[in-house]
Amino acid sequence: MRHKPVFQTIGTVAALVLLAFALPGPPPPDPVTLRYPAHWRAPVYDFSKNPLTRQGIELGRRLFYDPVLSRDSTVSCSSCHLSFTAFAHVDHALSHGIDDRIGRRNAPALMNLAWARHLMWDGAINHLDVQALAPISHPDEMDETLAHVLQKVQAKQPYPRLFWEAFGDSSATGEHLLKALSQFELTLLSDRSQYDRVQAGLDTFSRQEQSGYHLFRQYCARCHEEPFFTNFSFENNGLPLDTALRDLGRMAITGQAADSLKFKVPTLRNIEFSYPYMHDGRFRKLREVLQHYTQTTAPGARAELSATDKADLTAFLLTLTDRAFLFDPAFGFPLEK
């Protein structure tokens, strides 16, 4: 039984090739379900297009904290969105990015994003997945291109393995990178404040907080609608135009004069930590915010508040602080296991 060595070689190569293709793919990633209070409405984010998985969330979290997203690897998402301050940029009126350049708007707090219909203060972005493109490519923020980020990520361990585990494809694609970031951001759920416990019948408001809640419902709840404390809409709350920034807000997107000076209604959850306030961060203190609402003549925005009322309303707003969210280790910097 003799046969030519070349046959043997071919046979061996063939067997190896077959073996390579018979190797299993990555194990399916572990599905994760976003849990939120039963009385909240269904999210607007379509999870069927990007199902949450443990691996996808972890990849997104690593990317969120990785300055590789910026041109010179100095700025990450977390540079302006810090977990301990509800992912807002504490103390910075306007976001500052690469080379210490200053942007035009205040970095907003991030939470409960599965319910957000539009992103950015003017609603320029229509879907969470594509939001990250704006800071990545903005010359004053990260000054990068998605295509170049992918090249860098592809060459950086352990990303190829993480992409493989999360999406079954070790090459980083724009789709998968953006979806991973979305997955992490979608998990940033704030539903564990004192207010939430009171709603669930597990806690009570003090008399002052209760009075503040009453005032809140009278003057604020039309725009800062419960339970998200935003109606996800665009409103003009009577802030005078900042003549240096000349930011007309929503009008720049829709081209409609009626949208002039309208900005997205921000959530009031964790407002204790998300200062400075407003789209341009012009107010450093909550009392300045309340002062504005008692003085403005803008239709529907004015609140008649005595000094006691302001104290009560502030007491209520502090019940929206969600320490479990702020200090959740699952949202912090990813430490190597």
Binding site: D46, H127, L128, D129, V130, L133, G174, E175, L178
Partner: peptide
């Protein structure tokens, strides 16, 4: 309006 898509529509295609 469908978020991040793949292939020819991948946002990394410029």
């Amino acid at each position: 309006v469908s978020g991040a898509l793949g292939g020819a529509l991948d946002p990394s295609r410029g």
